[in-house]
Design a protein around this nucleic acid. Sequence first.
DNA 1: CTTTTATTGATAAAATTTTATCTATTAACC
DNA 2: GGTTAATAGATAAAATTTTATCAATAAAAG
Lengths: 221, 221
Amino acid sequence: MLKQNAVRPVVKAIPEPVLRRLPVYYQYLRKINLEQSGEYISCARIAEDLNTLAIQVRKDMAITGAAGKPKLGYPIRELIKAIEIFLGWNNTSEAYLVGAGNLGSALLGYQGFKDYGLNIVAAFDASPDKVGEEIYGKKVLPVKKLPEMIRRMGIKIGILTAPASCAQELADIMVNSGVKAIWNFAPVKISVPEGIIVQHENLASSLAVLSKRLALLLAER
Amino acid sequence: MLKQNAVRPVVKAIPEPVLRRLPVYYQYLRKINLEQSGEYISCARIAEDLNTLAIQVRKDMAITGAAGKPKLGYPIRELIKAIEIFLGWNNTSEAYLVGAGNLGSALLGYQGFKDYGLNIVAAFDASPDKVGEEIYGKKVLPVKKLPEMIRRMGIKIGILTAPASCAQELADIMVNSGVKAIWNFAPVKISVPEGIIVQHENLASSLAVLSKRLALLLAER
DNA sequence: CTTTTATTGATAAAATTTTATCTATTAACC
DNA sequence: GGTTAATAGATAAAATTTTATCAATAAAAG
């Protein structure tokens, strides 16, 4: 009999702060890779440019498995590759976007996602006005067809940009049809069964950090 | 002579995770306040609904200064008010948005900001096509006028939704004209003088967390 | 009016994350 | 080729954040 507990954490949980920093390095390194000719880059340099600490950069890189050389630093392209592979951005995942409003349209038009291995295949909306339209080359389909399409295409990622009032309902539909991860832009918490991932994107959270810092700054006299 | 160091941290630095959670409570509490009739709500209930831990909720609430009553919980409306005041969302700040592209337009159209004390007064863009337009009732002005307008209106917050390639340049303009905080949606790190706040909103960071979790989930067989 | 119980608030422990220090490696220089 | 210096990698310490425990309080019940 196999000891399940001993086997499970082969894939050690990655600290969220690390995961959030990796894309920052990634964007930076790709830029550097285009701009400069050198093959290698040091932690110190990365840290300076991104104003953080060299040690943190080194630790973060260690997590992706990237290896550097003493006196030289990390090979830039390998570093990029390592992050890409680590995050699973090397092979594209297809996603449906649900809710073709302002924000939804903006996301449909965002070219950057392909760099992150995300391909938004189509959009869905409840409004008859929007259905049939094309937004940045992506078809807008009726929500009614969502379950069938998720199943047929084996879609695992849903991007939820619908109003708060229907977010839960749409999340349920997605989950029941086989979606495993929901990127939730609606400003409400949505409940999902265990084993389903919800990544809540909350502009307000970010704004809160800014607001409070600004308030403190301005209060300093 | 006053000891500056002793005086400075009257306003204790607030942990960022706490700041990021407060808006989640805020959104939740406002919803609860409309939906249910009870005056009070307990940590346990909040924690259950938001699936987190009661202790964490209590700690977070303590930071805002909100006080609860044994056996009853927290007065809902006071809690909402406490968060609002704590984050400085009770009095509105005016902001300019720079870069009226897809994302910029989406933000201009987002009604929620007024709940967070943020009022986007106008947009600026470099493209002559966009200048003169109105987006969701907000005028799009030429970037050339940005410095003057920031000064004249005493704007402290800039929302940067321009392409990566001109982000730094626009940030410099804003800072030089008096902006104290930049909410940066461009996928590049921008450098600012000390004392200026940059809040970097990186979709890729959020996506990274989702990607990795999904990869781990699917790898679990 | 006393007892019970749910709940906050305070204090303490544990876990995690960040930062520092030290060691080993290797390219560049002499 | 040996020496120096820059840099990654490993280990350890510090700081922060989360979670647990316990004590105090006051509403509700008897």
